[in-house]
Write a protein that binds this DNA or RNA. Structure first.
Length: 767
DNA sequence: ATGCCTTCGGTTTTT
DNA sequence: CCGAAGGCAT
């Protein structure tokens, strides 16, 4: 990374090799569009680079070309990326093309380059050049303090939400003064702008700023001191931007200002892969590029070197339903068109995981490497069921972005408690949790040393040592008492072990030991994401235990899991979110959970309507196009019931799919509605409202029986002889169901709970 | 047995 | 915005 304190203008010294005459060899291997994108160095250029069309190659070649041809010195070039990883890759690849490292250019992330500028002119915004950049935790903490002092009810307006509002304002280049009164009034009863203002003042007093400020401050500096802006405008002969579709308004304004003098701005991106609107990205930036930069050349890279024709066809089909797009069609270069994109309907999440697992094994048997397989999900919690399946099958896997479940600290702690209950002499486990929560036996305390030493000398387990020493005065009175309590608890739990269900037992252990409370307290104290997830993970562990007959069986399972995972350096299946998968590629990609509510995500749809649906489609497009050979989409017909409530049994642990429970009752005229401590559901759609109970656990949830004309439903995989018993079907209003009986054209269908809206019709079926 | 009202929780993440 | 579930009244 560039030294932020290096403001030297050394770029004026032409310490560069002589310009190359004629096109360098690395240009000649490009296809015509790519070459145009490299050689078009006069005026604004928008390169619309579809998935797999050689975007990075164009970017890096263009930079090398500019320098090789002496069009600019390194110091006159600015190249902006979103991630440090992308910046590092660019640096390396340009050096490789040029055959020498490049010094003195402005290559880095938006934030790094903006920080460099703010540091150079910090006094303009009331800071000194050594200001601190604070992280999310600090932001929230500061905001909380302010809210408290300003008597804002944290219950009604959580600091996190308000922080989000302020951040979105910053993304749009709005200082507190610039927020429109109407918008300001919309949040926290109109207090948001006031809080924002105080927040900014407090940051300034601390000589600090947050990430959003880096861009915002540069804009302020440029506005207040135009001569500073001019200096940069003169300097940057060429501006290059990666992932332009992900820029927010601040970043856009910044780029526009900087490129004003020489107008040599080249933005590379793909409007069809804009998936970060929720953190301020504006697809509109790329859509209106030609308007913002008059005379701009738009170059489309549509030759796709990655995927088969089928994959590109499916992806294009899906994305073509979006209205807000510039439009381009990927042209397959691959000759391999043997395999179609597969869309598979399963009954529930568990069978879906089983399906994916079986397919992976089948592909592996065909000689496909696990390294070339990925399972891409919409949301992080979905990774669990696939993890569980991989474990059962003994397939090595890795979860990108987050530790694997059983490796997480809190889960290992909980398991350590169980190991001690099961087997008191498991000294490692006892040592792990003896001070969690704090019992006066921290790692370096006298108490723990005494115990360990005694155990070692007497050649007995830590637990036995503890049993002996609590009756002596070797330990401090306080430590002795807490240890005695703990030992008593372990005895109690051990006595309960065989009488209780595993999940109840573990719930009790986590409660009585104080471990859960300890973690909850930590959650409240430090609001960081990791601590937040811990309590949820523990609850999930407990609910997941229902499938185990005994504590022993569970511990056996865990140790087997650990063993599978311990095989290092093996080929592994990758499990991650669609967002994390952007920019990556695999031979075989699984895309599970393509059912309404999950993907496209219901909440996004509720919040942002059609524009959210378009973004969900783009996510789907990103997903499908990750694959070189196979994209395998699947969806569960029966709606999943994932942990909206943490103690609810997630469907992946339901050992056996319950038979559809049909309730034909509900004579005409039966009152319908909501009933005693639960809700009676009723069919909102049929002519004769069907009554059905709608309470209790998911596995007891009944289905809804409806007789429907066969012409009104679609079947996922059309059988030859018409509809058969057991076919999975979809209906526009009722959602998904299974055929129970066929009578001519009339079908008796059990639909999954509730009436589902028909988003899938605008999504999956468009492939 | 029936119904109204309230509360709670719910995606994606880099800098 | 919506669904699940708890409280409470009748």
């Amino acid at each position: 990374m560039n030294d932020p304190f290096d403001f030297s203008d050394d770029y004026l010294e032409p310490a560069q090799p002589a310009p190359v005459q004629g096109p360098p060899s690395y240009v000649e291997t490009l296809n015509p569009e790519q070459r145009m994108a490299v050689e078009e160095t006069d005026g604004p250029v928008l390169v619309l680079a579809g998935a797999g069309t050689g975007k990075t190659r164009v970017l890096t070649t263009r930079l090398a070309y500019i320098m090789d041809h002496g069009l600019a010195y390194a110091g006159e070039i600015m190249a902006v990326t979103f991630t440090n990883k992308a910046a590092a890759e660019m640096k390396e690849r340009v050096a490789a093309l040029l055959g020498r490292p490049v010094e003195g250019w402005w290559l880095g992330t938006f934030h790094a380059l903006a920080a460099r500028m703010v540091r150079a002119h910090a006094e303009v915004v009331g800071l000194t050049s050594n200001f601190t950049i604070i992280d999310t935790d600090d932001q929230i903490r500061l905001l909380k303090q302010i809210m408290e002092a300003e008597f804002i009810d944290e219950k009604k307006n959580p600091a996190r939400n308000l922080m989000g509002v302020i951040q979105r304002w910053k993304d749009r280049g709005l200082t507190p003064e610039k927020v429109s009164p109407g918008e300001g009034a919309a949040y926290a009863d109109g207090a948001a702008v006031r809080i924002y203002k105080i927040y900014q003042e407090r940051l300034r007093l601390n000589n600090a700023c947050d990430f959003g400020d880096l861009l915002l401050h540069v804009l302020t500096i440029f506005a207040e001191q135009p001569q500073i802006l001019e200096q940069y405008q003169r300097r940057f002969r060429y501006v290059l931007v990666d992932e332009y579709q992900d820029t927010n308004v601040s970043q856009y304004l910044w780029l526009r200002l900087l490129a004003k003098q020489h107008r040599n701005i080249c933005c590379v991106g793909d409007d069809d892969q804009s998936i970060y609107s929720w953190r301020g990205a504006e697809v509109a930036n790329i859509l209106k590029f030609e308007k913002d930069f008059p005379g701009a050349k738009v170059i489309r890279l549509e030759r796709n070197y990655r995927s088969t024709a089928h994959i590109l066809g499916a992806a294009s089909g899906l994305i073509s339903y979006n209205e807000d797009r510039l439009g381009k069609t990927l042209q397959p270069q691959s000759k391999d068109d043997a395999i179609k994109v597969r869309v598979e309907s399963l009954w529930d999440g568990e069978s879906e995981a089983r399906f994916v697992g079986d397919e992976i094994e089948a592909l592996q048997a065909k000689g496909e490497s696990l390294n070339e397989m990925a399972i891409l999900v919409r949301a992080g919690f979905q990774t669990r069921e696939f993890e569980e399946r991989m474990i059962t099958l003994g397939l090595p896997y890795k979860v990108v972005g987050g530790l694997r479940f059983y490796e997480r600290e809190e889960i290992r702690d909980a398991i350590a408690y169980l190991r001690v209950v099961n087997q008191p002499n498991d000294s490692l486990a006892l040592e792990r949790i003896i001070n969690k929560p704090s019992r006066g036996f921290g790692p370096k305390t006298k108490g723990l040393q005494t115990l360990l030493e005694y155990a070692r000398k007497s050649q007995i387990s830590l637990y036995s040592a503890a049993m002996t020493l609590v009756d002596t005065d070797e330990l401090s009175p306080k430590a002795r008492t807490s240890l005695r309590d703990l030992l008593a608890q372990f005895e109690l739990w051990r006595s309960l072990k065989d009488g209780l269900d595993v999940d109840d037992l573990v719930g009790q252990i986590l409660d009585e030991s104080g471990y859960m409370d300890w973690r909850i307290a930590e959650t409240k104290k430090q609001k960081d994401m990791k601590a937040q997830g811990r309590v949820d993970n523990l609850k999930e562990l407990v609910s997941g235990l229902k499938e185990f007959e005994s504590l022993n069986e569970f511990l056996e399972h865990v140790s087997l899991v650990m063993e599978v995972q311990d095989r290092a350096d093996d080929a592994k299946v990758t499990i991650m979110t669609l967002h994390a998968a952007k920019g990556l590629e695999f031979d075989n990609v699984f895309l599970p959970g393509w059912e309404e509510g999950t993907f496209p995500n219901q909440r996004a749809l509720d919040e942002s309507g059609n524009s959210a649906l378009e973004e969900e489609r783009r996510l789907g497009y990103v997903g499908i196009t990750r694959a070189r050979k196979r994209s395998i989409i699947s969806y569960a017909l029966r709606r999943r019931v994932f942990g909206q409530y943490n103690d609810m049994l997630p469907s992946r642990f339901v050992s056996e799919l319950p038979e559809p429970h049909i309730e034909t009752g509900g004579e005409t005229g039966t009152p319908s509605g909501d009933y005693g401590g639960g809700n009676y559901g009723y069919s909102k759609f049929g002519d004769n409202p069907q009554r059905f109970t709608y309470r209790g656990k998911s596995e007891n949830r009944p289905q809804k029986l409806v007789t429907i004309d066969a012409f009104d439903v679609t079947v996922s995989e059309a059988p030859d002889g018409g509809f058969r018993k057991g076919d999975h079907v979809r209906h526009g209003k009722f959602g998904s169901g299974v055929v129970l009986n066929v009578d001519g054209n009339k079908l008796d269908i059990a639909f999954a709970s509730g009436g589902r809206k028909k988003v899938i019709d605008s999504f999956v079926e468009k492939i």
